[in-house]
């Protein structure tokens, strides 16, 4: 059984911490995306892949698989449809030098951007991210709603898992027909539970003196040196 993303986020090793981590990742992302140089992409990909592997080990490759499913077909399509100097031709299929260059550049840029984001994903929980956004000036009510939704999703997801197990153990998915019936019953029950959950949440908030405030924890920012070094390395790629 693999670990949930939340479990990975909580246990991952963090070289850079606090708000600095989010800011550092966002600046790195902008520097990479806005650049047109493959050296910048390659530098970012290398650095953030290393950081992600250090943070969460093979979990990085697990989440990397998803974009690869999109990137590989895109690579083939770009290679085949781009005009330029023909390198190889077979029937109506032509491969051009420009096509290969463009495909490599695109895939490299996408992978570099993804590795940067994956570092953020692997090391930052949603509440941590929203805490940063609140301090960055996002209206309080949005943060509050987001935090409450996230907590409700956690509870409902656990609920769904339990119901799903119950349905499986009672042969709820034994045929296509029963699958559809079970899925519809499950969504109906979950909808009712959502309403019930909203009522309970309201009651709990009232019982705990709710007056429109949601606390957010601020973690001290650490890892300034390494963050600065990495940003300099990426910016250095622009000059090459």
């Amino acid at each position: 059984m693999h670990r949930t993303l939340e479990a990975v986020q909580v246990s991952s090793k963090k070289i850079v911490r606090g708000d600095l981590k989010v800011v550092f990742v966002l600046i790195s992302l902008f520097l990479t995306v806005l650049s047109s140089k493959p050296t910048v992409y390659a530098t970012s990909l290398l650095i953030f892949s290393a950081l992600s592997i250090h943070a969460a080990g093979r979990e990085y490759f697990r989440i990397l698989r998803v974009p690869l499913f999109f990137l590989l077909p895109a690579f083939v399509v770009i290679v085949l449809v781009t005009h330029g100097n023909v390198l190889w031709k077979f029937s109506f299929i032509t491969i051009t030098g420009e096509g290969i260059n463009l495909a490599i550049e695109t895939v490299l840029r996408a992978l570099a951007s993804f590795s940067i984001l994956s570092y953020l994903i692997l090391t930052t929980t949603i509440p941590e991210f929203f805490s940063f956004l609140k301090r960055a000036g996002l209206p309080k009510f949005i943060v509050e709603i987001a935090v409450l939704i996230y907590r409700s999703v956690q509870v409902l997801f656990d609920e769904l898992e339990r119901m799903d197990e119950a349905a499986s153990s009672r042969l709820g998915y034994s045929s296509r027909r029963s699958f559809i019936r079970t899925a519809s019953l499950l969504s109906y029950s979950l909808f009712l539970k959502t309403l019930n959950r909203a009522e309970k949440l309201e009651m709990s908030m009232q019982a705990r003196c709710y007056s429109g405030k949601m606390p957010v924890k601020s973690e001290n920012s650490t890892g300034w040196g390494i963050a600065l070094l990495i940003l300099i390395a990426i910016a250095g790629g622009w000059l090459l």
Binding site: R208, Y210, P215
Partner: peptide
């Protein structure tokens, strides 16, 4: 109410 332990224990305190 809150997703993180600290945040939940602090909920009432922040509101008072």
């Amino acid at each position: 109410i809150a997703p993180v332990v600290w945040q939940d224990v602090a909920f009432g305190l922040k509101n008072i």
